[in-house]
Write a protein that binds this DNA or RNA. Structure first.
Length: 448
DNA sequence: TCTGGGGTCCTAGGACCC
DNA sequence: TCTGGGGTCCTAGGACCC
């Protein structure tokens, strides 16, 4: 439980995280608009650099629209291995402040400062947070915005207040005055639907919401949401910082470049996604009882079908079998744009797994490999050997670089890294044997 | 403008049990 | 013959977050 009189909760939020890592590792992109996200026809923007935001580009926007707004930005597919590594470094630095760190995503976390700093006051909190920001910058080369307050709610709002590269400490005594004039949409958990509902009944600001009638809110938003929101508006948020939350579900899904109608295609893709889910379950030592299939149709309507087994499983075959049965009962004739598989109701191990270890299940490897699918065509771009924009590569003659673009049998590479000047570009045949995929470049904090 | 992929939490109704 | 109340599990859908 957090003490409402002590500024003991810190929220950290890396600035334009994915785009910032790209600019760090690719000198030619520094100071330029960079957009990371889906680069295909149905992709959306994951992160836009601040230079790209000037053009009106933002998260969740269709990449096609972003391209119209700023055709000259760099559009990159993302390098999650690199992002995970930077995230791990930042979370390690957070753990030096307190053992209680609650990651919300790769680029965000809460830290319970009070748990490690008895007698914390506003000045001490500011010093701790400032030192942390400097440490992140030195270790990763990135800027992080930080909010410190008496609760998760206010710390999170604070970290967003003066982004990027900002530190905002909200003294508990000033909290109410800060929140009152803010839009209800500022509250995490109030999205488009809830926001519109509140505004429609005249509740535009947090101050107005604080004076609302609880029964009315509960009628409008449901028990949990109604009561929580009223408490938040009144500055009441006792949620503790919780480290190590256990996963509740594992899933994989894919949006196709072109809607699919062929059941054999769909079943095959479902099976491959089941393989990925099973592999991730196994890696985490988990298994689950409920298998879910998600289908998004041509018109974006989405349905889920689930089935709970009498036992927990992490078997790719069993997940695929059940998912396939569920899919068989769904009408796909009009076209499916997205298909997904998930497993929930997780537990740490299962009898079946223990038995399987003694007597391994047949690993039908001949069909689980990612061979090209049979009927090749209407799946969108011709299956180029898979050079993705932004990808790290190595050339036997030119050294490390990254893919700037590919197509028509060619791939263009820029040869540079986090500690080089802006590099030169060269174009190769896309099957050039001298060119190979590479891991992320190493960022050296000691480099001058 | 035409909407990703990975998640979390909540609600509501029906089955089933005591 | 008609009718209880509460609890748990399951399924489906939806809002929201990064």
């Amino acid at each position: 439980m957090t003490d409402p009189s002590v500024p003991g909760v810190m929220h950290l939020d890396l600035d334009a995280f994915f785009a910032a890592v790209e600019q760090r590792d690719k000198p030619s992109l520094r100071g330029k608009p960079v957009v990371v996200g889906g680069t295909g026809g149905r992709g959306v923007v994951s992160t836009a650099s601040y230079e790209a935001r000037v053009f009106g580009i933002g998260s969740a926007m269709p990449t096609a629209r972003a391209r119209r707004l700023c055709p000259n930005a760099a559009y990159l597919a993302g390098r999650f291995e690199a992002y995970r590594e930077v995230s791990r470094q930042v979370m390690d630095l957070a753990h030096e402040l307190s053992p209680l760190v609650e990651p919300l995503s790769l680029d965000e976390a809460f830290v319970d400062l009070a748990a490690a700093h008895p007698g914390l006051d506003v000045e001490a909190a500011r010093t701790v947070a400032a030192d942390f920001r400097a440490a992140v910058r030195a270790r990763t080369g990135l800027t992080v915005s930080v909010g410190v307050a008496a609760s998760k709610l206010v710390a999170k709002i604070a970290s967003d207040l003066r982004k990027p590269d900002a530190l905002v400490v909200v003294p508990p005594a000033e909290q109410e005055a800060l929140l009152a004039p803010m839009s209800v949409r500022t509250i995490p958990g109030v999205g488009v639907v809830t926001g519109d509902r509140l505004v429609r009944v005249g509740l535009k600001t947090i101050g107005a919401l604080a004076a609302a009638d609880e029964a009315e809110l509960v009628r409008m938003l449901g028990r949990a949401h109604g009561t929580a929101l009223l408490a938040f508006a009144r500055g009441v948020d006792p949620r503790p910082v919780v480290a190590e939350r256990e996963a509740k579900s594992v899933s994989a899904e894919e949006t196709f470049a072109v809607d699919l109608t062929d059941r054999r295609d769909l079943a095959e893709r479902l099976r491959r996604m089941a393989d990925r889910v099973a592999a991730r379950l196994a890696a985490a030592g988990l298994s689950g009882r409920t298998v879910t299939v998600k289908v998004r149709r041509y018109d974006f309507s989405t349905l889920n079908r689930s089935r709970t087994l009498p036992h927990a499983t992490s078997s790719a075959r069993e997940i695929a079998q059940n998912a396939g049965d569920l899919l068989d009962a769904v009408d796909v004739a009009d076209g499916v744009r997205l298909l997904g598989v998930g497993v929930s109701g997780l537990s740490e191990f299962s009898q079946i797994d223990l038995l399987a270890e003694l007597e391994p299940e047949p690993q039908d490897t001949d069909t689980t490999e990612d061979e090209p699918l049979e009927s090749p065509q209407p799946y969108g771009p011709p299956a180029a050997p898979g050079w993705r924009p932004g990808q790290d590569v190595q050339h036997t003659g030119f050294g490390p670089g990254w893919v700037q673009g590919s197509g028509a049998g060619r791939v263009t590479v820029r040869f540079e890294g986090p500690h080089t000047p802006v590099g030169r570009i060269r174009t190769f045949r896309d099957d050039d044997p001298d060119l190979t995929p590479a891991g992320p470049p190493v960022f050296d904090p000691e480099h001058p």
